[in-house]
Design a protein around this nucleic acid. Structure first.
Length: 826
DNA sequence: ATCTCCCGCCATATG
DNA sequence: CATATGGCGGGAGAT
């Protein structure tokens, strides 16, 4: 018995690993696509099993499986066979495993090709699926929801979905990564770990609470769904509203992987982050448990997609279940050429669609009654106000807002109003297509115009200032983007509250250049505690930031003195078209802000579409949209503003600094960063320190002393990828502080965090990396770092606001102890 | 005992 | 109102 199981496991692993490459040994080169209709039904399987499958059959199965990557299935089958054979098939009662979501998902996936040809769209009828797979409908929803979050499917109407396969995956992941960076997940992860650490020592740390609260909170909780351009949710029905929780959760979960360096995320951490996380002390046990359950559900689907695999992280305390990203590395957007490659599919951006007001409205999030998140008392007030706003918003026609990624930033909530929206929205709406819609919505919120468009695709181009990008609208086409895309644009749906925020502030932006400061302030108010967050962010982020930082740094350099606000102004001013430009800025700002908060939206990348898109946007729309998207792509989300390379590098940093929460940098910068440095950022977050201006380096150095982090080599992926740029390095990351060292490679990296946004650079030290090892095998040692502040637990760097609104973080030193973690695979 | 996570009740959303 | 969707959490199988 056992043996078989083991085998199965083994085989799975093997298969899994192989598959990626595809064709490994066994796998016949089947086209990725699986024949759509595969007959694999449970029944068929049984039959086969029962019959003891002839070799032929088996081989066939294997092929399929392999191709499908349903190694599991095979395993299962084997098991079944044995059992059955052994005893007559006593009905194999399907043991629980046989009914697992993962297995079901494999079956589901086996029915559709990974890369369906654009020409032939495949539709999914839930009724058929449930029947064929013999499962309860509820289960299918779980699968579909996760797939939707990755834009592998999109809903058409009741009971009907369109299968997109993995065409959109690259874009989606890119967009998610961006958003994840914007959300400062890295920082959050670190905070959580830090907290844990502190708790250990001193159980009652109160202050932490605050931090925590600030963290996240409240706002975060809101969720937004990230959409891709082409893919949107069509069904009106589904789309807009409510239930997107699993989808959003799934996206966030994926973001965590993409952002953290070791690309290993423990369920515990993920759950905490996904929960609004006030967590802390509240220990809402039940809530936590529920979150974990959901994460398992999501993880099972992601595992079936081979995007992650289960591992265990062992720390001092014990062993914790975790998952490791095994999916494609996401390029940092940037640039690139790569992007294109990735996106291959997407050729034209598309646009799409439907911008109807309705959609917009749909987009709006319902206020949801529930929304309540747990919040700290302190936050409660905020929450209430926010909720009120939401209501208002909701009521408002346009409420749902989708914002472009960049927009979404705005998350920060502002209580204000929504009134503005409608008007804006319409304007925006006009031209846009769905994507547009989204954007519009967002735009509306933020600014009407806007949709942020696009950014030039490239960074370099991007860099240009806002001005460069034309706004989406009219000019749309503009510029840039020639290619595209690397950047992915995405739209996010915000909750009302968010919307508010956005709205509120956006207008201002739109209209006037907003001073960052203002914004900031606002955010701070609304958002949870920014300061804290900020601080943390700083710490945390580093890895990610680095790129960012670098960007920021550049910016600063560029602007240097300018504060973020100033920048904003400039940008805005710069923009001829204000709108566009403004938007971007605003977007950026918002992005920045968003960083602080997390968005909770569902992200939708605007960018290219894959076939899926509706390609047809009206011409105009398309043009606009497309262009937008492209443009956006670069920085849509973020701030969209394109910056010159130089800027990129530098710039971002400033942003961070500047605004604490509010202004953070946007993704753009981040995105850009990669380009700049290019290097390896694979880790996304990390890395790069390279370019950063000398100042940046100094920074880092300074910080370094402060915070040593363990470094880790990024997981394999990173290494591999990274060619490493000059820096090479490393990445530290810490995502939470865990560093994984893979066996072979050892790296030394120093991370620094420091507080504040500004600071986080991680410095890395050298790393030599051996060639990348690939999969580490099993146990890997991971190091975790915890922060410790010298003074005490809280000693983190504090932020102070500058007059301009920007905040600065003082650095505290953090000391991060490293722990070793071992990662073991199952 | 802990880790996973299936099952399915029941609130909501959609039509 | 009937369904379609999905949030949610009990509690049981797997380890």
């Amino acid at each position: 018995l056992k043996t078989p199981l083991k085998q199965a496991a083994t085989s799975q692993l093997v298969l899994t690993e192989r598959q990626p490459d595809c064709q490994p040994l066994t796998t016949p080169p089947k086209p990725k696509e699986t024949p759509p209709a595969d007959p694999w039904t449970p029944t068929s399987n049984l039959k086969m099993l029962i019959s003891a499958a002839s070799p032929e059959i088996r081989s066939r199965e294997q092929k399929r499986q392999l191709s499908d990557s349903s190694s599991e299935v095979l395993q299962t089958k084997h098991c079944l066979q044995e059992q059955i054979l052994g005893d007559e098939y006593e009905k194999s009662q399907p043991s629980r495993k046989e009914k697992s979501l993962g297995l079901l998902c494999h079956k589901f996936l086996a029915r559709y090709p990974d890369y369906p040809s654009p020409s032939q769209k495949s539709y999914i009828c839930l009724d058929e699926v449930t029947e064929e797979l013999h499962v309860e409908r509820r289960r299918i929803y779980d699968i579909v929801n996760v797939l939707e979050s990755l834009h592998m499917v999109s809903r058409l109407a009741r009971n009907r979905y369109v299968w997109h396969g993995r065409h959109n995956l690259p874009q989606t992941l890119q967009a998610l990564k961006k958003v994840g960076e914007e959300n400062k997940y890295i920082q959050q992860i670190q905070m959580i770990k830090k907290r844990e650490y502190e708790h250990e020592f001193d159980p009652d740390s109160e202050r932490n609470e605050e931090m925590a609260s600030s963290f996240g909170s409240s706002e975060q909780s809101e969720m937004s769904f990230v959409e891709l351009p082409g893919v949107e949710f069509r069904a009106a029905s589904v789309n807009g509203r409510k239930y997107k929780s699993l989808r959003v959760m799934s996206q966030k979960f994926v973001m965590l992987f993409l952002v953290s360096t070791p690309q290993i995320v423990s369920l515990e951490v993920a759950a905490k982050i996904l929960i609004g996380e006030d967590q802390l002390e509240d220990l809402d046990k039940s809530k936590f448990k529920t979150k974990i359950r959901r994460l398992y559900d999501i993880a099972n689907v992601l595992s079936s997609l081979k995007l992650i695999k289960k591992v265990h992280v062992t720390e001092e305390r014990g062993r914790k279940p975790a998952f490791k990203w095994t999916g494609p590395e996401v390029l940092p957007n940037t640039q690139d050429t790569k992007l294109e490659a990735t996106s291959t599919t997407c050729s034209p951006p598309i646009s799409e669609s439907i911008p109807s007001k309705e959609q917009c409205s749909k987009a709006l999030f319902p206020s949801k009654g529930k929304q309540n998140f747990t919040r700290h008392s302190s936050l409660i007030k905020l929450v209430k106000s926010i909720e009120n706003d939401r209501r208002k918003i909701q009521s408002a026609p346009t409420s749902p807002v989708k914002i472009s990624a960049s927009t979404y930033q705005s998350l920060p909530v502002f209580p204000n109003t929504i009134a503005q929206f409608p008007a804006i929205t319409k304007h925006q709406l006009e031209g846009q297509s769905k994507t547009a819609e989204e954007m519009q919505m967002k735009c509306a919120l933020s600014s009407p115009e806007a949709v942020p468009k696009p950014e030039p695709s490239q960074q370099p181009a991007l860099s240009q200032p806002l001005g460069v990008c034309p706004a989406s609208h009219s000019s749309v086409s503009p510029v840039i983007l020639p290619h595209p895309p690397s950047g992915v644009s995405y739209a996010i749906y915000l909750h009302p509250s968010q919307a508010h925020t956005v709205t509120t502030y956006s207008p201002g932006f739109m209209l006037q250049p907003l001073p960052c400061a203002n914004v900031t302030g606002i955010k701070s108010n609304n958002s949870k505690v920014l300061n804290k967050v900020t601080t943390e962010e700083g710490d945390t982020q580093r890895g990610t930031e680095e790129p960012t930082k670098s960007l920021a740094a550049e910016e600063r350099l560029d602007t240097k003195s300018e504060t973020s606000s100033q920048r904003c102004l400039k940008r805005s001013q710069a923009l001829p078209e204000n709108n566009l430009i403004k938007r971007r800025k605003s977007d950026e700002e918002s992005l920045d802000t968003s960083l602080t908060f997390f968005p909770s939206g569902y992200l939708i990348p605007l960018t290219h579409c894959t076939h899926g898109n509706k390609a047809e946007c009206s011409n105009k729309e398309k043009a606009g949209v497309c262009s937008l998207q492209h443009t956006a792509y670069s920085s849509p989300i973020t701030g969209v503003i394109p910056m010159p390379a130089s800027e990129l590098k530098t710039v971002n940093i400033p942003a961070f600094h500047i605004t604490p929460l509010n202004i953070m940098l946007s993704p753009n910068s981040i995105a850009a960063a990669p380009v700049l440095s290019n290097s390896c950022l694979n880790s996304s977050s990390t890395s790069s320190a390279p370019n950063p201006s000398s100042s940046a380096l100094n920074f880092m150095l300074q910080h370094i002393g402060l915070i040593p982090a363990g470094v880790q080599v990024p997981a394999n992926p990173v290494l591999q990828h990274v060619p490493v740029s000059s820096q090479s390095e490393n990445i530290s990351h810490s995502s939470g502080s865990t560093n994984v060292q893979e066996g072979k490679v050892s790296c030394n990296i120093l991370q620094l965090d420091h507080g504040g946004l500004s600071g986080k650079y991680s410095a890395v030290v050298p790393l030599q990396q051996p060639p990348a090892p690939k999969e580490p095998q099993e146990p890997q040692a991971v190091t975790e770092n915890f922060f410790r502040t010298p003074g005490g637990p809280n000693t983190e760097p504090s932020l102070s606001a500058n007059s301009d609104g920007t905040q600065r973080i003082s650095q505290g030193t953090l000391y991060i102890p490293q722990r070793k973690l071992e990662v073991s695979e199952d």
